[in-house]
């Protein structure tokens, strides 16, 4: 058991170091590319992203039935969103987009 314990501790330490390195590293590009405006606009137009409503349906239902936006006001949803982001281990994007949807639909 001592060996397994040492392996577990080692894996956890490496996980913490790895996650910290990835999470704290800059996401900025090393150089600034200058796309022509038309291409950039076209890329933006064709970027397919899930809506907050879709994320609300998919993410909340993983554990419980998705809540009705009307049941809480904007301020309450902000508190609940932070609580759920941590409790359900949601990404920042999921949490923010779901919050935006709930606030727009209540």
């Amino acid at each position: 058991m001592k060996t397994i314990h040492k392996i577990v501790v080692g894996v956890i330490v490496m996980t913490i170091v790895g996650i910290t390195a990835v999470a704290c590293s800059s996401t900025k590009k090393g150089y600034t590319d200058v796309p022509d405006t038309a291409t950039a606009a076209a890329e933006e137009e064709f970027k397919i992203e899930k809506s907050g409503a879709q994320m609300w349906g998919e993410t909340c239902n993983r554990c419980h039935i998705a809540p009705s936006p009307a049941d809480y006001n904007d301020t309450d949803w902000e508190t609940i969103s932070l609580h759920m982001r941590v409790r359900a281990n949601l990404t920042e994007k999921e949490s923010n987009k779901i919050l935006e949807f709930l606030k727009s639909a209540n």
């Binding site: 999470a23 982001r85 941590v86």
Partner: peptide, 10 residues
């Protein structure tokens, strides 16, 4: 008590 350190770590 919880603190959101950045977008990936709490």
């Amino acid at each position: 008590v919880m603190y959101v350190l950045n977008k990936n770590i709490t």
